[in-house]
Design a protein around this nucleic acid. Structure first.
Lengths: 206, 206
DNA sequence: TACTGTGAAGGCCTTCACAGCG
DNA sequence: CGCTGTGAAGGCCTTCACAGTA
């Protein structure tokens, strides 16, 4: 089945709420409750969920456990995701120490840098390797996502290394538009742009 | 004039490319060149730009300096943006040390935490204050954007402090859906969700 | 010719309205 | 009644096609 990125993203947010509901001991929930907790309209919630399966019961709503496992199965199927970090600077180090990733089965299993002072050291249990060894380690550790957290001027060169290592998905924190083929998925997070955008939106909303 | 968030975001990306073109010494450019550098279609580029003004010349293209200053004027008007950081943990510290912000006139002018060991210390020139002083300092320093980089369980309480301080825009790095009124702009960056989404997109694209 | 700017078409996504059910 | 699931409508956004210009 074909699921648009928008639906998938919202569904991950529903899942986050479902985990909270579970922790609170709730047995059932409704599109209205999920709507209140996530900010999406109750119609959107129902329509998104119905893309995956008919899991709700009229008059009652959804069983929290059933819904969570149903959505999970379609999206990740309980898989663990192995990630490589490129660039062990300030941002990269913060990501290595970010606790929510492991909790979500997102494991940064290797980091790469070109700084010889950093190579062979360990941050929060993750070893930093010479970027020249990227290809070898990526295939050995079955890494499927790369974090690009190097400076702008090195971004496109490192991106080439990433792609030639066989990785198909990049989370790009550098302020550079990567010129990659259509078979590579890139998600750009340029913090400067996010701040400027937020400022504009807040200014125009007054 | 009314500009959609999508157009605004792309325009900031065009601006980033225009700065590079300027640095490379180019005098003129075209929608085609901007398209190649940013990945958006040349029609989208032209349409977006024409929302702001008719800055192009048939047969020639756009003057880089003229276009850059024209777009800049509509979006930010050269203003400096004052930002407060809430939560001086690993991620917060990385943001305080992130060089691209200052370069883009985005200044984190105060940080807040509740940890008494951190309060009154300084990271990369920015002082960390007791979160109890938030309201006073935010109005004194004319802060307009807050970064929320605290743990999930504290996120909604800190968000209340932020909003009661008069701030209208929040960049939320915590994995929590903030329950705020419609007059508050929130941009959520939940890294776990971004990774999972990327993994799904890359898997389904094969 | 080589470029911009734009009306029209098409596609995607959200919202509305309501059928169906316990 | 209160809730799900869904066809239809409406709105937004991108792409197409082309007029206009130096």
């Amino acid at each position: 089945m074909k699921i648009s990125p928008k639906v998938a993203k919202r569904t991950f947010i529903y899942l986050r709420s479902l985990e909270n509901l579970l922790r609170e001991g709730k047995i059932t929930t409704s599109s209205k409750e999920i709507s209140q907790r996530t900010g999406f309209s109750h119609v959107t919630v129902r329509k998104d969920i119905s893309h995956f399966a008919k899991l709700g019961k009229p008059r009652i709503g959804y069983n929290v456990i059933e819904l969570k496992s149903g959505l999970d199965r379609f999206l990740l199927g309980g898989k663990t995701v192995n990630i490589a970090l490129f660039g062990a600077g300030n941002l990269g180090t913060a990501l290595l120490k970010y606790p929510a990733l492991k909790r979500n089965k997102l494991n940064i299993v290797a980091a790469f840098d070109k700084d010889t002072n950093k190579i062979s050291t360990t941050i929060n249990g993750t070893r930093i390797f010479d970027i020249k060894k990227a290809k070898e380690i990526i295939s050995k550790k079955r890494i499927v996502i790369a974090i690009l957290a190097v400076s702008e001027k090195n971004a496109s060169d490192v991106a080439k290394v990433i792609i030639s290592s066989g990785i198909k998905a990049i989370l790009n924190f550098s302020p550079a538009s990567l010129n990659v083929g259509k078979h590579i998925c890139v998600k750009n997070i340029d913090l400067s742009i996010e701040f400027k955008l937020l400022f504009c939106l807040a200014s125009n909303a007054t």
